[in-house]
Design a protein around this nucleic acid. Sequence first.
DNA 1: CTGAAAGCGCTTACAG
DNA 2: CTGAAAGCGCTTACAG
Lengths: 343, 343
Amino acid sequence: MKKISMRDIAKELNVSTTTVSFVVNGKHKAMGISDETAQRVNELIGEKGYNPNTTARTLRTGKSNTIALIVEDISNSFFASIAKGIETEAHKNNYKIFYGSTDNNNEIADALFTSMKNSAVDGFIITPTKGMAEQIKKLKKEHIPFILIDRLIPDIETDYVILDNYQGAYDLTQHLIDNGYRKIGFVTLSDGMSQMENRKKGFFSALQDAQIDTLEKTILEVSYQDTDEFIIQALQKYLQNNKNLDALFFATNYLGISGLEAIQKNNLTIPNDIAVVSFDDHVLFRLTVPSITVAAQPIEEIATKSIELLLKNINKGKKQLKPVGIIVKPEIIIRNSSAKKVI
Amino acid sequence: MKKISMRDIAKELNVSTTTVSFVVNGKHKAMGISDETAQRVNELIGEKGYNPNTTARTLRTGKSNTIALIVEDISNSFFASIAKGIETEAHKNNYKIFYGSTDNNNEIADALFTSMKNSAVDGFIITPTKGMAEQIKKLKKEHIPFILIDRLIPDIETDYVILDNYQGAYDLTQHLIDNGYRKIGFVTLSDGMSQMENRKKGFFSALQDAQIDTLEKTILEVSYQDTDEFIIQALQKYLQNNKNLDALFFATNYLGISGLEAIQKNNLTIPNDIAVVSFDDHVLFRLTVPSITVAAQPIEEIATKSIELLLKNINKGKKQLKPVGIIVKPEIIIRNSSAKKVI
DNA sequence: CTGAAAGCGCTTACAG
DNA sequence: CTGAAAGCGCTTACAG
């Protein structure tokens, strides 16, 4: 039951493995293998069901046709959707994908990087965490192709594909203002990743441009490490301590989801007691009653552009290209949770 | 910027690569390398930051420490959660994971299998589709370790980890009956995969055991290929044509989600107009109002048992073990969508 | 206690 | 138009 190799094919046809290799790789024309020989080789390959050994090829060429996708948490619907898009594009280009979740934990991230690098992946697609700065610098220094998605590492120039988070937050806030809301609470993560910071900036700018008193801006920051239960409790307290709020802006979808739970538990009605908007779309936001207004990310586009950029990076060879940043636009989807304020 | 190899280490210390290899693999004790030599090797390895080349090791040993996870759709929350669990367990055991989604499409599945096999994965974890029977048989014949999850292929004996779908459906139906519902519609997929068939059987048995007239069993079957829009429309029509129904049983979570949309659009109230239960839990089911009663799968357990079983299979060597089937138990989570019927 | 050497299955520069 | 041979970086049976 041994797997059949190039040598087996060569032997049986009394040709060299060189010839077989050229045929297998479609180089027979260029290398001047006669059509007749190529034909014979291809026939036997079909007959025997020969498939080239990818490991040997990788060892020889240094190219594995594998990319590593490192996300925060593959079970999070946003990253799961990204993974699906990346997969589709990668397979089109004949790439396989390793995945790994960091859970925002640096030791896990470290182990992932080491393991992937030793496995000769051709490139990385990474949603970095703050502590990853060192690893990212190392990748850069070693000239390993990679791109960042969803967020950046401040002060490190890299290729990336991210959302215009500032604009999304600005527009979402503007929408609340247009609909009569003035006292908007902002709920975000405390770890200060770039995407979160830009959402916060967009939120502030919109308030400022509308000349809404900054005193009314009330922020709640929770940690990624906190459990859902803890976050829900924090939100419940926050709502009780800030009864003047007429709207809430959730900076990411799982905060929004916990937010809905907290609002339910506090027996508040959306949007009459409090309006709600959130970053990142989610089935729940589409189907819950009332449905939730969001800034949605163009996931397909992020996936396509990511693979495109990474492949360009992988295929660039020796030349040092200047890092390319791609910024995609969010879509504001207006639903019922932010209906015009009734006064 | 060349990567440092075992030979570099050996040369610099005037020892053979054999020695270095033994030390790297922790075999120096067994092979009688002196502690002093081992010490020197380890020091230089640390200093130079040497990491063994996994590709070369794989080519030589035939073992890649890689498994392929082939699911229906990685962006589906159930499979995304499975992927997370599998990942955690795999990393604990020093395995990396390739993932791939079949979308229930056989050509894609075929391409995935070929690509993964050529990449020398040590084993497969697969949610099979009907058309995969041939591929699965081939894996068996080639003695490639694999296990099936979520569903089986009829008439092919394999290792597997699946849910007790019959029991889950039976209990969920029994719960509806206990709460006074008698005219229960069953919504399922038409492709006849094993998990779906068993859910249907469980549903029927519960009705039969309660001596509920089989004439009242009304089934709607849709195809996996149908778009969400199409399914929702089909459901709306189904609801209109079967106004006598007092409850709906959705055989999988995305049918349940589409079901909620259809019920909303038809302006029906849950559970007063129609009660709802669904297979597979989902955030939406937990948070929507009213929350939805479900049969939840123990995802952690499925992941843990899957890796355990696959690794046992991988490490079994030549011996032919009898295929092992593991059946895990669903958890019925009673929520508000199936509250006692008001008469 | 340690080394020289073969070989995993490819690709490719070199030679004719 | 095609082949012999080196080499990618490991592991391991064999020898001493």
